[in-house]
Design a protein around this nucleic acid. Structure first.
Lengths: 212, 212, 212, 212
DNA sequence: TATGAATGAGCGTTCATTCAT
DNA sequence: GATGAATGAACGCTCATTCAT
């Protein structure tokens, strides 16, 4: 019983730290973040935090790893047997939603990749690459079947990533230029609608437009 | 003559420093960059570098200011009296080209904005906002004239920024996934082509499609 | 119990630092003193010292504040209802004693004031000035009552300060010229005797001299 | 002719530097003064200044040496064959005048001596000590002749130094407390008068007072 | 002589990490 | 587990001094 409580308390504490660390690393990068900053946000002392994760490096690695799963999920969900445009639209929706609810996750990877991806190169060249290649094949099959305009699948994925993550990564600029918050419903709706038009209309196969 | 040589040498040195600083600030942000790092890259000692720019802050400001002009140029060039889709395509080309030739410029602002834009908030809310509002009005007039699909101009601009800057900001990821360099001609051509389809096809007005 | 020991140890350490800092600031002033110097004298590392006082500035302020009380005490003790010459003599004694036992305190303020009093200007124009004005009024009342020679009270105070503090501030010179240490009893006695003659005999009212 | 002009110009420049250096060293001490500070005040570049004096240390030594002569002059002028009280009063006047016209000289030595006189220990134990011993003998002879109250000559000299130099060394405090500038004529007059009363009245031999 | 340019040493301060309790 | 205390290694910056011209 006691062991259970201890184990659970330990896990809760680790979660608290990871969440605080994510916010800091996403906002200030690895070097720009101090352990004190995270400890303060997590409501504990610096040595205590390090007791749980050993070093700042290891904490950073843990944050990256933990966030990675959330990160890959939307793409994993794209099904080969679905209706192409509907699948893409659904993927777009999932990415938009993730950018809205977990912008720090997006910023965390943005920061990491801008710096040359020193900590996740392996993932990029391994797991992610496999996943992306798999989905590119799916998209290519859709194109070959005449159900999508003939774009390069990899660049299509990049475009979806770029447009959706932009609202998370460039949040400060978006809000400065729009004069509103990303959670403003009308604003978010306009963003979603614009992305949908570009993607769905842009991807419609020519003959389908005339055949409709 | 001598004075000339001195002045030129001074200017060359300042350029060297600014270029080295751009690369560092782009990758690691203000806090993550050390003066030593820049000095090493520029091939000089730390105090010597500070002899030219006074403080790290001032150097950072100089880099931002210098890069800002390049940064705004492509959008500034969009003409209200041009043919809408051609103007947008030309703008897209300029952005793509800039991302390829000056990816650090893109990353510099990416890093800065991800961190909350602490040093350029003024620019975002001032000069940039005015420019963007002006161009949004232009795009809106095109839409109102039935020459573009009814998207929200601001979000259209975001989409163009996002897609083009993605290749600069996420270069490490793009290369890891594509297995090629951004300067690979075929690769760049496929990227350009995909963006063009999404944008141009996505923006074509419905009636035009039928009237063609 | 443990908390008590900790608290005491912390206080002891702060005292050690303050004492070391007093000696350094007294000799070299704020700019002339390095944190390393103080840390070395206090037997600890530079960051550890700053752990207790935050910054050099704050440490300096703490030293000044702590010393100020000792500094003002002798003058504060001069009573309006006492016998004038006896009060002045007693004040003289207190100042002499302080100069002998806490010469660094005197030197601390000497250094600070010589440099233009940048850190204690407020005290000089506030608390100290009030105290001095109050005591000047007392002395003036004694003069008006014919109990002291008609000197300017403010300058009388300056004279007492000057003569007594001289032995602390110019200690190196005094010892070089006298060939003895300030704690040499006969030497200190001669100093005291000379100051007493100048002050007490110099301040005796004329009529009292003739009435004797 | 040209050589003459050069030599003179060189001398003028050295004087300019020495004067600027005196002001700085007096105000901020050796460590608190920067070569840039002096160069700026002297209207020349840092390397040029060092061309004339080699190092900051040597410049400091030169300033001390140059100022020493002015410094000893007043005491040197006290004549054994004069009327005792008149000689002392004249000495007092010379010291007062010097403190008023060259307060930096006083502060320069004050700073040096407070720090333990590291640069002028030799002078204190040599030339100055001889001079002081000579004058102490003169004062003692006056006392032995019954022409002065029986004070200790060395301490009398200290008292005179202390009172007069106080107005130079503690100028910032004096002005803060008096609310006036040292050059205010009435204020200077009151200072002088108070010092005269303490010294002259304090030193008058007892029997003289009754014989008057 | 005179000065821009350059630098090693050092300064006050921060920070990730370790130690002791 | 948890935390005050401690520190070596850096960091941004200053400064006396030197170099090149």
């Amino acid at each position: 019983m006691n062991g259970d409580r201890d184990r659970r308390s330990r896990e809760v504490k680790r979660e608290t730290i990871l969440e605080a660390a994510l916010e800091c690393f996403a906002a200030f990068g690895f070097r720009g973040t101090t352990v004190d900053m995270i400890a303060g946000r997590a409501g504990m002392s610096k040595p205590n935090l390090l007791y749980y994760f050993g070093t700042k490096q290891k904490l950073h690695a843990a944050v990256l790893e933990r966030t990675l799963a959330q990160w890959l999920e939307p793409l994993s969900g794209m099904r080969a047997d679905g209706e192409p445009l509907a699948e893409i639209e659904a993927y777009l929706e999932r990415k938009i939603e993730l950018s809205r609810t977990r912008p720090e996750a997006s910023r965390l990877f943005a920061t990491e990749i801008i710096q040359g991806a020193p900590h996740i190169r392996g993932v990029l060249q391994g797991h992610l690459r496999e996943l992306v290649e798999e989905k590119c094949a799916v998209i290519q099959s859709w194109i070959d079947a005449g159900k999508l305009a003939p774009v390069e699948p990899l660049h299509l994925i990049f475009a979806i990533w770029a447009m959706t993550q932009h609202y998370a990564d460039y949040e400060a600029q978006v809000e400065a230029l729009a004069g509103r918050n990303l959670n403003d419903v009308a604003f978010a709706q306009a963003a979603r609608q614009t992305m949908r038009i570009l993607l769905i209309k842009g991807l419609e196969p020519r003959d389908r437009a005339s055949s409709d």
